[in-house]
Nucleic acid binder design. Structure first.
Lengths: 197, 197
DNA sequence: CGCGTGATTGAAACCCTTCAAGTTTAGTGG
DNA sequence: CCACTAAACTTGAAGGGTTTCAATCACGCG
């Protein structure tokens, strides 16, 4: 359909280094990063595995999620073009992955080894890489507060505003899962909203 | 009551640097960090303020929380001895604080300016400071998943296991707020648990 | 001592889940 | 390219857990 959604994303943009840093980073990536394409539905990382890879999304859409003991999926985040997806925290502590990663669309990624990321970070100004991580903390912080203080309808409306492009690219049941409600509840809630508008 | 709960916490332990780094850090802290005591109930930081301070808790207990538009409090985290409490993320982006910080007990803290933290971080190995931040990401990640997938009772039991010392130091209504439920709901839930045991 | 805050308990309302059925959509093989 | 099938979405009824509101109890602090 709209095949040229956007130009392909690049890790170098993601890192936004100074120009001389870029040269160094480019060389590192050229000799170490592997570009791979996963077809829709492929599970890239399993919960419980030991993995030391991060995935930079050039094109497509990834998802991270857990399975609880009742076998229910809980979507943790979506990773569209330009996002770096990984289970950072488990990796930093040499623990098995807490999350599954799978491809919601056919997705092309740069697979980056954890050690390479370390070297890349070494080239970035420390404050920059810190700021990047802090952004994630901020996103998570707001999500916790949302889950505690907002109704499902409010959370859905917020999702629409925050990730308008993602809404049309993932099944509703995954959005429901991200919001922490059942698919049925989301469907009814959408019905309500449509009626009122 | 049990006044000698634990020895006083120190920022140097928190940073856990190598011994030669410690000397440098010690000097920095001596000339810049201010030790302050806030009495129970004092609001140390208001939401909306621009602040560039972090608080290292030597003794006592801090809390961070938001107020929603309906005037309800939502506890984001508790900060007992040895914890670094601040609205990191807002500060890194030069945005006004999202959180209030107040003292639940009489609390002694080292007030550390953001710029000093930057210098201290400069002395730490980058990976160490990264790891510290990643721990927080992990905690938040698990909390999001808990809020999405567990019942209030399960979340309460998990809180008891994870923060056994804090339970006895804060009013129940704050625990309820942390769990994302009303004080009444927590009270009933506790009644249930007591009956079953 | 009394007042105010926190905790408890109960009843009613509400939101969301669960289960079940029916409809639409999308993907697959012939 | 159509036909078939599976998956996704919708809708409804019943049930459960949580909120809300209100009243009562317990207690610590001034």
């Amino acid at each position: 359909m709209d095949e040229s959604r956007e130009r392909e994303a690049s890790v170098l943009d993601f890192l936004h280094l100074s120009s001389d840093e870029t040269d160094k980073a480019k060389k590192l990536l050229e000799k170490s990063a592997v570009t791979k394409t996963f077809s829709k539905g492929t599970i890239i990382q399993h919960k419980g595995e030991y993995s030391f890879k991060a995935y930079f999304v050039r094109k497509g859409l990834l998802r991270t999620y857990t399975l609880d003991e009742k076998g229910r999926e809980h979507v943790f985040m979506f990773g569209p073009e330009g996002w770096m997806v990984s289970d950072l925290e488990s990796q930093a502590n040499n623990e098995p992955a807490e999350l599954f990663i799978d491809a919601i669309e056919d997705t092309t990624v740069d697979v980056i080894d954890q050690r390479i990321m370390g070297e890349l970070r070494g080239d970035m100004r420390v404050e920059d890489s810190f700021r990047k991580l802090l952004k994630r903390v901020g996103v998570l912080q707001r999500r916790v507060i949302m889950l505690m203080s907002k109704t499902a309808t409010e959370r859905y409306e917020h999702f629409l505003e925050t990730y308008p492009d993602i809404v049309h690219r993932v099944p509703q049941k995954m959005i429901a899962s991200y919001l922490g409600i059942t698919p049925e509840a989301l469907s009814k809630l959408r019905g309500e909203l449509a009626r009122k508008k």
